[in-house]
Design a binder for these strands. Structure first.
Length: 293
DNA sequence: AATTGTATCAACCGCTAGTAT
DNA sequence: AATACTAGCGGTTGATACAAT
């Protein structure tokens, strides 16, 4: 029963990749795309296991990777996203176009931890070092019993919104026009506007057509919608059906607001019998104000 | 110049959720 | 329904580069 193993482990190379191996992998993926990693090594003539090929491609060879140092902006974004998500590196990376989870993880461990410690902040709890330890071990998660201060949540929301905005530019790099848009992102966003309400456009309600609200849901909402595309009105109403609190203007899970899939950041809003009971909510107000419930 | 210590990061390992058989 | 496997994730390790002595 089942299938054959993904690779002959006895006949696979390990360790650093050679230029030739890189070229083979690049050439193969250019010709055939990212298909089945299991069969790729053999098809590409590589003595590597599929897992290794996948990692090499994702972390190093992918053409859309952003090389070079992290910017101060990215630093702050990572800190804020980490405050909200904990060590969910892939989720954080998803909000930082051109960066990989591995890269961010390494960067966190080598730079940001130290940076936070020098600020007197615990890198795991994001609380002042002298402060009482959080009741839960590890990082504060959206479902954790040690939620961040309201201001931190709001900051994190803003950061994620900005990140989502950045991701939008990146996600659309398939075509040249979009690539251009991505490359000019910095020109058009010299200072990230983090003061955004990102609540209403994620699952746009047919009824919520207030122009004030529409104008207050700027780039980030578009980004959220992009990362969780719901293009048609039918889809929107479907979303309303799936998220009745949102459609009715009631509080909505912060994670969902930020554009995470329900299974991504807050599984509990999907699995908890009464998810509203143990999450913090983000109530959008007019004029970009927020209330943390 | 040689040695030792430290920082960085690519790659590996082990685990889990989802899926194919 | 049970089993076997894949893809993806986060933690850890090891090789290399660089800095200090």
């Amino acid at each position: 029963m089942g299938r054959s193993p993904c690779c002959e482990k006895a006949h696979t190379n390990k360790g650093a990749w050679t230029k030739e191996e890189d070229q083979r992998l690049i050439a193969y993926i250019r010709a055939h795309g990212e298909g089945c990693w299991r069969t790729l090594p053999k098809a590409a003539g590589l003595l590597r296991c599929g897992k290794s090929c996948r990692l090499r491609w994702i972390n190093y060879l992918r053409p859309d990777l952003k090389r070079g140092n992290f910017t101060e902006e990215e630093d702050e974004l990572i800190i804020k996203l980490h405050a909200m998500l904990g060590n969910k590196w892939s989720l954080i990376a998803g909000r930082l176009p051109g960066r990989t989870d591995n890269e961010i993880k390494n960067y966190w461990n080598t730079h940001i931890k130290r940076k936070l410690l020098s600020r007197g902040v615990d890198p795991q709890t994001h609380r002042p070092l002298g402060a009482a330890t959080a009741p839960t071990a590890g990082h504060p998660s959206p479902t954790s019993a040690a939620p961040l201060e309201a201001s931190s949540i709001t900051d994190a929301a803003k950061a994620a919104a900005a990140a989502a905005s950045m991701k939008t530019a990146s996600d659309s790099t398939e075509d040249a026009g979009s690539r251009s848009a991505a490359s000019t992102y910095d020109e058009h966003h010299p200072g990230l506007n983090l003061d955004l309400s990102i609540s209403l456009a994620f699952y746009p309600s047919k009824q919520s057509s207030s122009s004030t609200e529409a104008s207050s849901t700027t780039t980030a909402t578009t980004a959220a919608a992009t990362s969780n595309p719901r293009p048609s009105p039918a889809a929107a109403s479907e979303a309303d059906a799936a998220h009745p609190p949102f459609a009715q203007g009631r509080p909505v899970c912060l994670c969902c607001h930020l554009g995470f899939q329900r299974t991504e950041a807050c599984g509990s809003c999907q699995t908890a019998p009464n998810p509203h009971a143990n999450l913090r909510y983000f109530i959008p107000l007019q004029g970009g104000q927020h209330v943390i419930d």
